[in-house]
């Protein structure tokens, strides 16, 4: 903040002439720029096409193999969609009622989400809005490490620790049970929910927080009435990612949930999920030509449809709740 000075500053003059010469430097040739622009464009298109190709071929394989499955005499669509009896490899009359597997998947996912979503969200709110910065900077990386542990470890943890604990609490728990697997999947999803929800809360501009506080709101008012609604779209994304991850989770359920498909709501029971069945088929020594082998593709296709529906639903919900800030 100085007054205009009469004597010109020599360093200023030097800077002035230097800037002039810099501004006279030859510019990047537009033709070259456009050319590389086209190159980048083509490269991006190729990447996009590649992922599209992969997706299409996966769907193609699923579709053809699923069609082959339904061509078997012992398989009918009404049995597949209308029954909960999933008995593909027993000697008895075979039944392919997908609901026996869907219910297992839903039970495990339900237990996992009942654990991971509330806990993850509350932890995220604590970390983002209440925790001192040191605690946050300490806990956040730990959460992210937790999310990187191989799921087989969670599977063994469920089998070796959660199940015995559950059996100690209540005798009715089977060695393989939905509760144990569900809790392990919940623990697996918790860091994902927490970390993503925390990112969503943090991305709400500070000026909105200030606005709520400046009107005489408490920290809780600001969090619940302004920040959470503003971050809702991101939080829903976090939830949906967790649900998708829980539905697709394989290792934990294969280890801890068991392999007896049945439509039950009792979490003490042994069940089998869609992914659990697939890993059993793919890894087991079943013939590659039997109905039970091809049933795997039908299950995979169903799983694909469920996940697709979930994603589309997520987009609709997110669009409705989107509250943009500037």
């Amino acid at each position: 903040m100085s007054q205009p000075v009469a004597v010109p500053d020599p360093t200023k003059i030097a800077l002035e002439s230097r800037a002039k010469s810099l501004l006279n430097r030859p510019r990047r040739r537009l033709a070259a720029t456009r050319f590389s622009e086209i190159g980048i464009y083509v490269a991006l298109i190729c990447c996009g096409l590649f992922s599209l190709l992969i997706t299409v071929s996966i769907i193609g394989v699923l579709l053809t193999e699923t069609t082959r499955f339904f061509q078997f005499d012992e398989v009918t669509l009404s049995n597949f969609l209308g029954s909960a009896e999933w008995t593909p490899n027993l000697g008895e009359p075979k039944s392919f009622g997908i609901w026996g597997l869907i219910s297992g998947t839903l039970l495990v996912t339900g237990i996992a989400m009942a654990f991971a979503l509330p806990l993850g969200l509350v932890t995220a709110i604590y970390l983002s809005e209440y925790a001192p910065r040191q605690i946050r900077n300490f806990l956040k990386p730990i959460l992210e490490v937790l999310a990187g542990i191989p799921t087989v470890v969670y599977g063994f943890f469920a089998l070796m620790t959660i199940t015995p604990f559950l059996q100690w609490v209540h005798e009715g728990f089977n060695v393989y049970n939905a509760m144990s697997a569900g809790l392990a999947v919940g623990i697996l999803c918790f860091p994902t929910v927490c970390s993503l929800a925390e990112d969503a809360l943090q991305s709400v501009p500070k000026t909105l927080r200030d606005g709520a506080l400046g009107l005489g709101g408490t920290r809780f008012d600001a969090t619940v009435k302004v920040i959470l609604p503003a971050a809702l779209s991101g939080i829903i994304s976090a939830f949906l990612l967790a649900v998708a991850r829980a539905i697709g989770e394989t290792m934990i359920v294969a280890l801890a949930a068991g392999s007896r498909p049945q439509a039950t709501l009792d979490p003490r029971n042994e069940i089998q999920t869609m992914t659990g069945f697939m890993v059993q088929m793919a890894g087991g020594d079943v013939s590659n030509f039997g109905t039970e082998y091809f049933s795997m593709y039908a299950v995979a296709f169903t799983l694909f449809l469920i996940t697709l529906a979930l994603t589309m639903m997520g987009n609709v919900v997110r669009g409705r709740f989107r509250e943009t800030y500037e």
């Binding site: 000026t207 200030d210 606005g211 400046g214 302004v226 609604p229």
Partner: peptide, 16 residues
């Protein structure tokens, strides 16, 4: 803050 209200330098309407 209930007694001393403030209008901030940068307009900050809530996304409502």
């Amino acid at each position: 803050r209930r007694r001393v209200g403030i209008v901030f330098q940068k307009a900050n309407p809530f996304p409502k």
